[in-house]
Design a protein around this nucleic acid. Structure first.
Length: 344
DNA sequence: CATCATGGTATTCTGTCTCG
DNA sequence: CGAGACAGAATACCATGATG
């Protein structure tokens, strides 16, 4: 059984992603020379601009990565086998931008999950063709539909250089376009812009957990899925709580919370409403019945008690390899629980 | 005895809501 | 637009145990 979160080819990462050989003398590593001051100043100025528009600044790349192309993918081949964008009037979204079906699919995934790792998108929508995806993303970024970022993965207390994850999000105009051209259920919420940069890795794992869960839902015969992220669940829960408090200000808050939890079919543990990372709602039997599945991506920071309550809540738990290793230590007394945690 | 890993808790940060 | 409330997650911090 494979427990790794990484893709199979991740072990053999391209050489340019690895730390460069650093000359060592007398046990002290020589620090690479800093960039010229004007370049640094420019970068900081750019970061300042970015942070002012409510997005987080691009993290300055270490010197050995500075000359890389944004997506770290080889030059496009000379021959483009896929149909040319401007020859396909079916995919004109109306403002002079032509989208391929593949692009529409990719944008739809990004919109539903707010942030998706480029490597995941390559696997799920482009059949592993990273360079085709890279070209399309460059086009979409040029047109102001998506935003590409490189963020650091969690360090988990490790001193090592964190892995960098390339992710894509929709821009606000991009979200509007995707709403027009995508085929969504009316109640499918779409998101634009990157928030909570520190949680990006976790958020990208939610997409992967969703893919795993959809495999299962497909086998159950579920169709027409809608993804509800924790943002939306939280929003609805808060609204309901405020509504109840307004209706009866003297009522015990815990009582209200418990009632709201029941209304939303959410577990209520220790006076807290447990909210999953995402909920997938789907139709069964041609829409005569509906089903839903709550998924939770657990990290090494979860404590056994916390984990137990999530599992008892009926959440489908997913974890990546590193997190699973740490969790395994914590809950070795309850081995059955580890089996309930699914691989990511 | 010193060092390191691990465990648990507190703090910080982010997003959401409503209201003034 | 800021405050107060609520929730989730990462991180900081300190206590404890293992290990040489």
């Amino acid at each position: 059984m494979r427990l790794d979160l990484e893709f199979p080819d991740e072990r053999r990462r391209p050489r340019e992603l690895e730390m460069p050989e650093v000359p060592v003398s007398d046990g002290i590593a020589e620090v690479p020379p800093p960039p010229p001051p004007d370049a640094l100043a420019l970068r900081m100025e750019r970061n300042e601009e970015l942070s002012n528009v409510n997005s987080f600044p691009k993290i300055p790349l270490p010197p050995h990565e500075r000359n890389q192309k944004p997506l770290d993918i080889a030059d496009p081949p000379r021959v483009e086998h896929r149909p040319r964008r401007d020859r396909d009037p079916r995919n004109d979204v109306g403002i002079g931008i032509h989208l391929r079906p593949q692009e529409i699919k990719a944008l739809s995934e990004v919109g539903r999950f707010r942030v998706v790792a480029v490597r995941d998108l390559a696997e799920t929508v482009y059949g592993g063709d990273r360079s085709a995806l890279a070209r399309d993303l460059r086009y979409l970024e040029e047109k102001g539909i998506v935003s590409l970022r490189s963020v650091n993965a969690r360090r988990d207390g490790s001193w090592r250089q964190p892995e960098r994850i390339q992710v894509v999000t929709l821009t606000r105009p991009g979200k509007k376009i995707v709403r027009q051209v995508g085929s969504f259920r009316q109640d499918q919420q779409l998101y634009a812009g990157l928030v909570k940069p520190r949680e990006v890795e976790h958020d990208t794992q939610i997409y992967r957990a969703y893919l795993k869960e959809m495999d299962r839902i497909d086998r159950l015969g579920g169709s027409n899925p809608r993804v509800v992220l924790d943002f939306e669940i939280k929003r609805n829960v808060q609204r309901a709580i405020y509504g109840q408090r307004k209706a009866d200000p003297d009522r015990d808050l815990n009582e209200i919370k418990e009632q709201v939890a029941n209304e939303f079919n959410l577990p209520y543990v220790d006076n807290q409403i447990q909210i999953p990372d995402a909920r997938i709602e789907y139709d069964l039997d041609q829409g005569s019945r509906v089903g839903s599945s709550d998924i939770e991506v657990v990290t090494g920071a979860y404590r056994p008690g916390h984990l137990r309550s999530k599992a008892q809540a009926g959440f489908r738990l997913y974890a990546g390899a590193r997190d699973r290793a740490r969790l395994g230590r914590d809950i070795e007394d309850e081995h059955h629980m580890l089996h309930e945690i699914l691989d990511l």
